[in-house]
């Protein structure tokens, strides 16, 4: 699931451009990352949120600015492991629901 999420997060030219920008340097502020992309600031913010949700980047408040940092370190392993298992349980419970409810229709 994690892999699929990451693929999905990067399967968009704007988001890929953002990650490419971050991969070249160390980190950017939200403003720096949003510039020269040919989209509105609000649109950029939305794309950044997609990257945050997929654990591709994280946001680090720094004074009045917010830094966007690429998640390259392995510190997220435990969190990723747990969130992957949570997704798996959601899928299994849905499968259980379909199965149990389907029996009533037969």
């Amino acid at each position: 699931m994690i892999e699929a999420q990451i693929y999905k997060a990067l399967g968009d030219p704007v988001r890929l451009e953002m990650v490419a920008k971050l991969a070249k340097g160390s980190s950017c502020t939200i403003g720096e990352l949003s510039s020269n992309l040919g989209i509105s600031r609000q649109g950029a913010r939305k794309q950044i949120q997609v990257l945050v949700s997929a654990n591709v980047v994280r946001l680090v408040p720094q004074g009045r600015e917010t830094q966007v940092v690429l998640n390259t370190e392995k510190l997220k392993v435990a969190k990723m492991f747990i969130s992957k298992l949570e997704t798996e349980w959601d899928q299994r419970l849905h499968a259980l629901k379909s199965f149990a409810e389907g029996q009533n229709r037969n």
Binding site: M1, A4, I6, V77, M80, F81
Partner: peptide, 12 residues
């Protein structure tokens, strides 16, 4: 956990 993650989805 790291191994399990790597096994399952070469991942991150």
């Amino acid at each position: 956990m790291e191994q399990a993650l790597e096994q399952n989805s070469k991942g991150w």
